[in-house]
């Protein structure tokens, strides 16, 4: 039963990792950009949530109402102001610029919020649990997983069923020809980053409710998101959810064997997938 419990908890944790990954996957899909600062942007979402909660006394989940649009706006401005200038055939500029951005963000967090770990208080939500078939499941992890499924379904819908998604796919297919359709790729990229950071805001708030975070927490979140993307297969959003679940389960099962093995087990699961299925379990685009 303990093992079943570990697997179920890991699955739910995977929802959070899928949320870390979804934004990464989205912007890679649309503009082939790999954002090293992605983890720090998740943490930015958490700090913004914390700020709103402290200023207004709102429940952290309600803070989403402010944080999601703020992060989306930041995403649009960031993309149009800086990141669009780095896109091209050379992979160095986007990598190094987002790396620089990561360092800047971390130090801004340090200045603004000190190095002390912070956490958002979600009240009873944090401790509430339901018992299902002898397992006690936290309401927060369940909610997180449900949100992850909803977010991925929503992104999937936007991508494949709306004019915006059509534009995303067209620009991703062929930037030049997409311009001929009247699509301004800079604007489309800005919208894609806005959408990605809206998702990132949700991920950040859920992270900040679940665990404490500090200015350097972003690196690990980038890595988890990245591992979920690669395990699931590039360009496949549902695959990303499965990737997140595999990572989460590996971590909770690893922790069950030995607490020190929690994170290591997740990375090893990733490396094993990389060794036997280098394109991930459900690849869609080669990239």
């Amino acid at each position: 039963m303990d093992w079943v419990n570990a697997i179920v908890q890991g699955t739910l944790l995977g929802g959070l990792y899928a949320l870390f990954a979804a934004g990464l996957s989205l912007i890679f899909g649309v503009m082939r950009l790999v954002n090293i600062a992605h983890g720090d942007l998740i943490v930015l979402g958490a700090y913004l949530g914390l700020t709103v909660v402290m200023a207004t006394g709102l429940h952290p989940l309600l803070a989403l109402v402010f944080v999601v649009p703020t992060m989306a706006a930041i995403g649009y401005v960031l993309q149009r102001g800086i990141l669009n200038k780095t896109l091209g055939d050379d992979i160095l500029p986007p990598l190094l610029v987002t790396f620089g951005l990561s360092v800047i963000l971390q130090n801004l967090f340090l200045e603004g919020y000190t190095a002390d770990p912070q956490k958002m208080n979600a009240g009873v939500l944090e401790t509430a649990s339901v018992s299902v078939g002898g397992l006690s499941l936290g309401v927060l992890p369940l909610l997180t997983f449900a949100i992850a499924v909803a977010v991925i379904a929503g992104l999937q819908f936007i991508f494949y069923r709306t004019p915006l998604g059509r534009s995303f796919r067209a620009v991703s297919d062929n930037q030049e020809i997409a311009q001929l359709m009247g699509l301004n790729k800079r604007h489309i990229f800005g919208l894609a980053m806005a959408l990605a950071l809206a998702v990132t805001a949700i991920a950040g708030i859920l992270l900040g409710i679940r665990t404490s975070f500090d200015p350097t927490a972003g690196g690990a979140r980038l890595i988890y998101g990245f591992e979920a993307v690669i395990i699931g297969g590039l360009g496949n959003l549902w695959g990303t959810l499965i990737g997140g679940v595999i990572l989460g389960v590996a971590q909770t099962v690893g922790a069950k064997i030995d607490p020190g093995w929690q994170l290591l087990a997740g990375h090893i699961a990733f490396l094993v997938v990389l060794a036997i299925r280098p394109n991930g379990l459900f690849p869609r685009v080669s990239g």
Partner: peptide
């Protein structure tokens, strides 16, 4: 920390 922020900005500006 300001020093590191400056360093990051300088690197981004140089790269761009």
């Amino acid at each position: 920390t300001t020093y590191l922020i400056v360093l990051g900005i300088v690197a981004i500006v140089v790269m761009l």
